[in-house]
């Protein structure tokens, strides 16, 4: 059996882990509330822009805001949105696993957002073509990302979706499909007077220029929405990981405390036995 002092030292170390995970859990909880609130506020903005886009769209195929004469790279760009660092549970690992299922070096180029994802890709011996840090501030400059996306015929985005505090899912969607499906109006007859056309609207500089601008804006907003959703899922995953770590460390600390008491008791018993044996020996010598 280990010495009580050793067990005590280990218990103290585990208690520090409990404090640390507890602090990180509280921090994640605050971040979730803040991020969730922001996502809700931004959704109102996105929905309003989407509703205009739905009414103004002229063709069924989303063109990524490209000019007609621009020739895109005939590859699928895989975009990964991951956390900026560790301590976010297994969510990035799950995303990388899903990505690897689809990845084909000959057919795909890889764009990774977030340092943690870049590290995981290196560990899996996959080279990425483009890298961006995960934006931390509310305003995200998506222009560099947009420029790259426009170069490719197809783009698929792997992101983390927040379902609830205890559930986050990994999803992958074709960027063109998601924009087309959201922009599609199910029933044209329901649009009625809401349809934005040259008949009932003034466009400046022109309806085509505004439609092209909106197509760019929608792509920008879609990418931004995926990044905001992933951020929320990441903090939720961190909260979940920290809660689990705290629970485990509390259990370990309790077990160590019991083990310490047992070892201490055992030590006292051994000393008592030794003393009694010594006394018996002295008595036996005295009688002789």
């Amino acid at each position: 059996m280990r010495r009580p002092l050793e067990i005590r030292a280990q218990e103290n170390a585990v208690r520090s882990v409990v404090s640390l995970t507890s602090a990180l859990e509280s921090l994640s909880s605050m971040q979730i509330a803040k991020t969730k609130n922001k996502v809700l506020i931004s959704n109102q903005f996105f929905d309003e822009v989407w509703s205009i886009y739905k009414q103004i769209r002229v063709d069924a195929l989303f063109n990524f805001g490209r000019q007609v004469d621009e020739k895109p790279i005939d590859k699928e760009l895989l975009i990964l949105i991951t956390a900026k660092g560790g301590l976010s549970g297994d969510i990035d690992q799950r995303l990388i696993r899903k990505f690897i299922e689809r990845y084909d070096q000959a057919k795909n180029d890889v764009l990774v957002i977030g340092h943690h994802g870049a590290l995981k890709l290196k560990q899996s011996h996959i080279d990425y073509t483009y890298y961006f840090d995960l934006p931390e501030k509310d305003y995200i400059n998506l222009d560099p990302l947009m420029d790259i996306t426009k170069k490719y015929t197809r783009s698929r985005i792997f992101y983390q979706d927040y379902i609830s505090l205890s559930q986050q899912e990994i999803k992958d969607v074709d960027l063109s499909e998601v924009v087309s499906s959201k922009g599609r109006i199910a029933d044209m007859s329901s649009v009625g007077d809401d349809l934005v056309s040259e008949k009932n609207y003034i466009f400046e500089p022109s309806s085509y220029a505004v439609a092209a601008y909106l197509e760019n804006s929608i792509l920008r907003l879609t990418l931004a929405q995926f990044i905001y959703d992933s951020r929320l899922a990441q903090v939720a995953s961190r909260f979940k990981a920290m809660s689990a770590a705290k629970e485990r460390s509390v259990d370990t600390a309790t077990q160590l405390h019991t083990e310490y008491n047992r070892a201490k008791r055992n030590q006292v018993d051994t000393r008592l036995k030794e003393s009694l044996a010594g006394l018996k020996k002295i008595r036996a010598e005295g009688a002789a």
């Binding site: 934005v196 609207y201 003034i202 466009f203 400046e204 220029a209 505004v210 601008y213």
Partner: peptide, 14 residues
């Protein structure tokens, strides 16, 4: 430069 006043016609611009 332009101004938008009440009762303006439907308008969409960048």
């Amino acid at each position: 430069p332009f101004d938008i006043l009440p009762r303006h016609h439907n308008f969409l611009c960048m």
